[in-house]
Nucleic acid binder design. Structure first.
Lengths: 218, 218
DNA sequence: TTATATTTTTAGACTAGTCTAAATTTTATT
DNA sequence: AATAAAATTTAGACTAGTCTAAAAATATAA
């Protein structure tokens, strides 16, 4: 069995590998986990001994098949619990991350599968992130963001790239929840601020915010 | 915040105090937690520093109000999660203890209260143990066991004193689940083995087993 | 291509929790 | 009340995970 800490390292390495990076750097992991590079080096050695990562000094680290499997199953758990918290316990989408961060480590095959069934096999979590299936297969979003759209285009909100409470909270206030329908009315040339219609209501949104909102054109 | 380990010690001390014991012994705690007395001494000092227990060397330990509150809230959590696992995820009553042992430590007021509501404020867990209410109030079972009954008496199963998988599993096979109706047909004088009717089916049950089955006479 | 900056690793120390073995205190027995 | 037995505590060591500070390797830049 792996400790919570080991699991968190694997998850971090998995996420940092997503954009096709070969050899995740010690510093990047340290930053992501809010810890020090020296601690990361220590842990990487331990994970390498357990064949969860492959590692050569100074060359960064990669997950092995075994390590990837663990990481994906933690992420599966995390996202299923988020669905549970929002759909069954009526939490808001900006409240569930920290709780799911704890629940994800109760990593028992049977519990996960029962939960999945109870939730009726959801495909996406409350932030639009895809839930890996029980064989670890996961569809990656094509990340078209609101900021990629042009005046007159229409789209639907399908996810977020930024998961902070403040961002999620802000989006909700602007009615920019999953499934919201958007029409681009105007874009300020200087700073890319957008004027849009969200379910027929006028909303002004900064580039900072629109860059992090994943949409599907239609 | 308290660590998982600290919480487990508090829970153990709470349970060992239930039969009115003043000053829970180091050895008893060590036995309950499958650890060594020297480890217990170390932890007790730590808990005493945090005002969670009162402690005098060689005199055993007692929970303070603060320590009792923590213990009871962990137990509340544990039992609510057990209800969830059995009622919502269709686990059997002999499968839920270890999972609840992990879930109980995710001790967030809001999560617990939402879960309680979702489960429709259950009063007992799947083993018949009472669930403390949100103010920490808990009704203790009067422990009348099957072994206390005489020939001809009638009763209903309301709980168990022993929670091992093998015992629970055995009970289920004999249809001795919560709510089962019992009539005592005969008792062997030599070893107190009972011949009983369980929902009108004949069952033979040893004293060892009947001593651990909590019933309500009717 | 040599010097400088950055990244990474090592060395050694710290905390939480545990253990064994020895010392101390309490309890039980004569 | 003295002694033996049992329970408890202390002392010192170990593991997991972390940290700081210094050393080593790699990358960057003049």
């Amino acid at each position: 069995m792996n400790s919570f800490t080991e699991e968190n390292y694997l998850k971090a390495i998995y996420k940092l590998s997503l954009n096709g990076v070969q050899g995740v750097s010690t510093n990047a992991i340290a930053y992501k986990l809010a810890t020090k590079p020296s601690s990361v080096t220590d842990m990487i050695k331990k994970l390498a001994d357990k064949k969860l990562v492959s590692y050569q000094k100074y060359q960064g680290v990669n997950l092995t098949k075994k390590g990837r499997d663990v990481a994906v199953s933690i992420i599966r758990n995390h996202r299923l619990w988020e669905v549970f918290l929002v759909e069954k316990l009526n939490f808001k989408w900006d409240e569930v991350h920290d709780l799911a961060e704890e629940l994800e480590h109760i990593n028992t095959h049977k519990l996960t599968e029962r939960l999945d069934e109870f939730l009726d096999f959801p495909k996406f979590d409350p932030h639009g992130d895809p839930i890996p299936d029980k064989d670890g297969y996961i569809v990656q979003h094509k990340d078209i963001t609101l900021s990629d759209l042009k005046i007159g285009e229409k789209a639907v909100v399908v996810g977020v790239k930024e998961h902070s409470k403040s961002y999620l909270n802000y989006l909700e206030q602007q009615h920019l929840v999953l499934g919201a329908e958007i029409i681009i009315k105007d874009i300020v040339e200087f700073d890319a601020t957008m004027q849009i219609l969200v379910n027929n209501k006028h909303v002004i949104i900064s580039n900072q915010a629109s860059k992090n909102l994943i949409v599907k054109k239609n």
